[in-house]
């Protein structure tokens, strides 16, 4: 069970790193005046909120919205990466028809679903903090919403098929087509003017970059840990099945 040990170590380290990044975000990172703030300021002039008039609060909203960035963007990027991994294993499965790849693809999809939901939640917190509303049909949020639905559809599809091999094949086909669909969604949603900040356009100061990278690395570690732990569980249950089968012979 070496893998499980690795997974636990990664989970702890990843957790520590994301926590560290969280503190860095609050104590060492300087508040930048790009992206989020300009949009927030624009919105302030359009929809002034009463609480903003108090001196301490004036920075309140952009300040919070910048802090959430260190969690939101890493988790979003991790979710997309793991989604891609799921499609990669789906392709491997269709090529080889080996069940292990189907299991890997499904595990990656599960992990990605967790991350996508976290992205949605942090995204909504950000929207609320910056724009004063919980939801906005803007390209990234919408894309993630569609991605969540696609992933749910993936699991609905799997659960409605009894034959194991057919379940695996259909799951793989849908995973591939969903991963192709998601970027198209994103691209087409941009036909409608967007107000999501483009963060990397103006670059980042090192005091921002460090916590961001730390958070990103931590998040990927957590992701890998979740994936490995679930894999370990699956492999165990498959072994039990194999033993049962062998005993019957």
């Amino acid at each position: 069970m070496k893998q499980l040990k690795v997974a636990i170590v990664l989970l702890v380290v990843g957790g520590l790193l994301t926590t560290a990044a969280f503190f860095m975000a609050f104590y060492t990172a300087e508040v930048q005046r790009f992206g989020t703030i300009t949009v927030a300021e624009q919105l302030d002039t359009v929809i002034p909120l009463e609480s903003v008039t108090a001196d301490g609060f004036q920075y309140g909203r952009p300040w919070f919205s910048q802090k959430i960035f260190y969690f939101h963007v890493p988790v979003a990027e991790a979710s997309f990466l793991v989604f891609g991994v799921a499609a990669f294993f789906a392709i491997r499965f269709l090529m080889t028809k080996k069940r292990e790849y189907d299991t890997k693809s499904r595990m990656a999809m599960e992990t990605s679903l967790i991350f996508v939901i976290l992205t949605m939640i942090t995204g909504m917190l950000w929207t609320r903090a910056s724009w004063g509303i919980w939801w906005e049909w803007e390209p990234r949020l919408t894309t993630y919403f569609i991605m969540t639905l696609l992933m749910i559809a993936y699991f609905v599809l799997r659960n409605s098929i009894e034959d194991e091999e057919r379940r695996a094949t259909y799951g793989a086909v849908f995973a591939i087509i969903a991963v192709i669909d998601a970027p198209i969604s994103f691209f087409i949603t941009r036909l409608i003017p967007s107000s999501h900040p483009v963060v990397f356009q103006s670059g980042m100061a090192s005091s921002n970059l460090v916590p961001f990278i730390v958070a990103q690395v931590g998040m990927l570690m957590v992701g890998y840990a979740i994936y490995t732990m679930r894999m370990g569980e699956e492999i165990l249950s498959e072994r039990v099945e194999a033993v049962k089968e062998a005993l019957e012979d």
Binding site: A153, I161, D181
Partner: peptide, 21 residues
Amino acid sequence: SVNTNGKDFVLTVLMVPLMYP
């Protein structure tokens, strides 16, 4: 979807998000 239990429901769930763009 015709090979699943709950044919039309599964089709809807698969189709609508894929058709979004």
